[in-house]
C-alpha cells in the first residue's frame, strides 16, 4: 500500500489490509499521528475511521492541525 503523509511530505510503502483506524495505529508506531490529527483519503475520497482498506489502495494522510 502506498501512503502519502502530508505533514512529512513523504510516501511510505507498507503491506496493510484492514480498518483505516488500525492503519493509523500502525503508523503511530513510527510517526506521531492520531485519528484526531488527520484525515484519511482513499483513492482521492475522504473515508471514515472504520473504512476497510485493501493493500492496493492509494492512501493520503492529510494533516488536521494548523501549520502555524
Amino acid at each position: 500500500m502506498k501512503i502519502y503523509i502530508e505533514s512529512q511530505n513523504q510516501t511510505l510503502e507498507i503491506k496493510f489490509k484492514g480498518k483505516a483506524s488500525d492503519l493509523i495505529k500502525k503508523l503511530n508506531e513510527k510517526i506521531k499521528i492520531t485519528l484526531e490529527s488527520c484525515l484519511i483519503v482513499k483513492n482521492n475520497e475522504l473515508v471514515t475511521d472504520d473504512e476497510q482498506l485493501k493493500d492496493e489502495d492509494e492512501i493520503k494522510i492529510l494533516s488536521v492541525v494548523s501549520g502555524g
Binding site: S7, N9, L39, L46, L62, S63, V65, S66, G67, G68
Partner: peptide, 24 residues
C-alpha cells in the same frame, strides 16, 4: 472541532497545500 473545520475546508476546496511555520 479542528477536524470538522478541516473536513469542511477539504470538501469546499479551501484547503491549500500544507505549509507549516518553522517555529510552530
Amino acid at each position: 472541532a479542528e477536524k470538522e473545520v478541516t473536513i469542511y475546508a477539504f470538501l469546499k476546496g479551501f484547503r491549500n497545500e500544507f505549509t507549516e511555520c518553522p517555529n510552530a
